[in-house]
Write a protein that binds this DNA or RNA. Structure first.
Lengths: 334, 334
DNA sequence: GTGAAAGCGCTAACAA
DNA sequence: TTGTTAGCGCTTTCAC
């Protein structure tokens, strides 16, 4: 910038004004400055600007896995809102590792992002308290923060799961399995709670061998599914399964498509919608969340905070929607 | 940092040494400094560090759409490589808009990212020449740069498409349609070239009404597909379709599942693999690329440049793989 | 082993 | 309309 000023024969501040489109520069000087900028290939160094202004026009996003079809539209939605506010998005995947979430979040804070959207992997966010106190707006998404108060945007996991299981019950099922994500994860617990509530409302007993929480890798899901389906867990075989998220659902679709179960169609309702669910045979009934809407809501709340909204922490709950397509309407064999 | 120094009763530089793990601090002073850091909730301001050191330990990634199932694993792979090198990832979507690509890329440069991975939407990247000259390592991914020389990592689109169309020909098809992305996009052109090459090799004529390039939105694809399939374009109806990318394939799967075509199964081979392709009926035969591998290769090349590799610009071509699943092996009705 | 001073490139505040 | 000065928070240099 100094070089530009020298070349244009003006003061530093004049160049700054031109670069930032501030008023108070005669069109002639402006032209000279612009010429010098082009000639020198000058581009403002935003690091210096950040240092001086104390604001970075960037926000951070921490999700579980950027490549997951649930998180990728969510990230894109956050990006669009950021863009509308002139901010860039720095994002990273925690890989469901609390330590990695922490590292990422703190690295983002060290870069002085203006705000942070976090899908937590950890259940203790006290490490963020100093940052939040120092002014980093923070919104938790999909899962609540642990041991601190903060804004959050959640899907109604409990009600979604409850209605999905009630749907299976309404179609005549009495023995229903639940396969969900790891038990430490808030949404997994809430969805399981919804399952239990629906069963209890209908006066149906739940065998503990029908309930399986754990990693969403396909091996674990296959094992648990097989146990429920063939009755080797000790209780009678289930006639329907409720799946806790899109990763589990995809594995279950594969399991249920295998020859051994083909003769005895098993009903399936999955939490989360996914692409092509309607073209499978049978098409898959789901409890749909809108990941883009979740991302957008969280980002908008974040920018409202950055614009100075000073209310106490808020919780936004987003509804889910049952999409009946076929797999959830298969009756039990009687 | 000044406050920490004051509180610990040491000099500024000593705090800096502790924070950065440099040698030359007695363990006693180190302890005092660490206490002050915790007490004050101090976190190094990386903007200042960047300003001083001239390097940001962050890289930028510009893709078409972060939410697209082709780009999201690619982004994740770039992120993992960045993480392994201690760098953060700033990324954005160009939405296939050259102006937006330019804005994003220049904004990233203004933040002084150390390097840039770009999936180009534009066909003229001369705007990046000053940045590259100024030391921003740049790798183009999936499509080559326009009007400048730079590193690039590409899939072998030509050979992939050629082999896919040859596969259809080997299964007896003589009238084959091609539906691809917009004609300005390099991969679309290459894949079309592959299609023409395979047809020519087999001595088959190509009616121009069998070829359709354009936006990947479902309306356009539906219209073009219907024209080829019912012969309303003037030429005889096609018995097979080759699809130029995963968005087009998904729409075609929907079109071909509709009642009007059910009676006359149409063969389909798609460029790009996608989740659940194997569970559709019929399962979809694809030319698979490995998006994660593309991302990883590009990022690794980028970091090799950042580590000082000084060779002239390189082009890496990644192979594709035909995955036969059923839809591409449907014979023509004779 | 430790610290003081200079300066990275920019913008805010104030002069002219 | 334009320029000058100070300083954002850190690291580098060099002296102690």
């Amino acid at each position: 910038m100094k070089d530009v000023a020298a070349r244009a024969g003006v003061g530093l501040k004049t160049v700054s004004r031109v670069v930032n489109g501030e008023a108070g520069v005669s069109s002639d000087t402006e032209r000279r400055v612009r010429e010098a900028i082009t000639a020198l290939g000058f581009r403002r160094n935003d690091s210096a600007r950040v240092l001086r202004k104390g604001t970075t026009a960037s926000i951070g996003l921490v999700v579980e896995d950027l490549a997951d079809p649930f998180y990728s539209p969510l990230s894109r939605a956050v990006e669009e809102v950021a863009r509308a506010h002139g901010a860039l998005l720095i994002n990273g995947s925690s890989a469901e590792d609390p330590e990695r979430e922490r590292e990422l979040a703190l690295a983002l804070c060290a870069r002085r992002v203006d705000g942070l959207v976090i899908v937590p992997a950890s259940d203790d966010h006290r490490y963020l308290a100093p940052e939040i106190a120092a002014g980093v707006a923070t919104v938790f998404l999909d899962r609540p923060p642990g041991r601190i108060e903060a804004d959050m945007v959640l899907s109604d996991s409990f009600e979604g799961a409850r209605s999905g299981v009630a749907h299976l019950i309404a179609h005549g099922h009495r023995r229903i399995g639940f396969i969900g994500d790891r038990p430490g994860i808030h949404t997994a617990k809430e969805r399981l709670r919804g399952y239990r509530a629906a069963m209890a409302e209908a006066g149906l007993p739940v065998s503990e061998s029908w309930v399986a929480l754990g990693p969403t890798g396909s091996d674990r899901v296959r094992t648990d599914a097989a146990r429920m389906l063939d009755g080797s867990g000790g209780a009678a075989p289930v006639t329907a399964v409720f799946s806790g998220n899109n990763r589990v659902t995809v594995t279950l679709v594969r399991v249920l498509a295998e020859p051994e179960w083909r003769g005895r169609p098993v009903a399936l309702v999955g939490f989360d919608d996914f692409e092509l669910a309607d073209l499978l045979s049978p098409p898959v009934t789901v409890i749909a969340q809108d990941p883009a809407d979740l991302g957008r809501s969280a980002a908008e709340l974040l920018f409202r905070r950055l614009d100075g909204a000073e209310e106490p922490p808020r919780t936004l709950s987003r509804p889910t929607k049952l999409v009946a397509r076929g797999s959830g309407e298969i009756p039990p064999p009687d």
